[in-house]
């Protein structure tokens, strides 16, 4: 719409001193997309979990036998 004139006009100072200060600001760490897991990795982790469970249960059984 080139015809319509805006009531606000931009102001660009042409006279006097123009100063700009670049203040370093603190940076945040970025958001983290989580990587998907490969099938092999999921299977490995599942097997490891099961193994840990098995060990735990065997130890519990041993303790009960001793008592």
């Amino acid at each position: 719409m080139p015809e319509v004139k805006s009531i606000f006009r931009e102001v660009l100072p042409k006279q006097g001193q123009l100063s700009m200060e670049d203040v370093p600001t603190m940076v945040l760490c970025k958001p983290k997309l989580l990587p998907l897991k490969s099938v092999t990795l999921e299977k490995l982790e599942k097997m490891q979990m099961e193994a840990q469970e098995a060990v735990k249960q065997q130890e519990l059984a041993m303790k009960e036998q001793l008592q």
Binding site: V27, C29, K30, K32, L33, P35, L36, K37, S38, T40, L41, L44
Partner: peptide
């Protein structure tokens, strides 16, 4: 690294992990 987080070895984090990328 200003936009993409890095892993410890200095690579950008990947979209997929396998046993070897760990």
């Amino acid at each position: 690294p200003a936009v993409r987080p890095m892993t410890q070895s200095g690579r950008p984090i990947t979209g997929f992990v396998r046993p070897s990328t760990q």
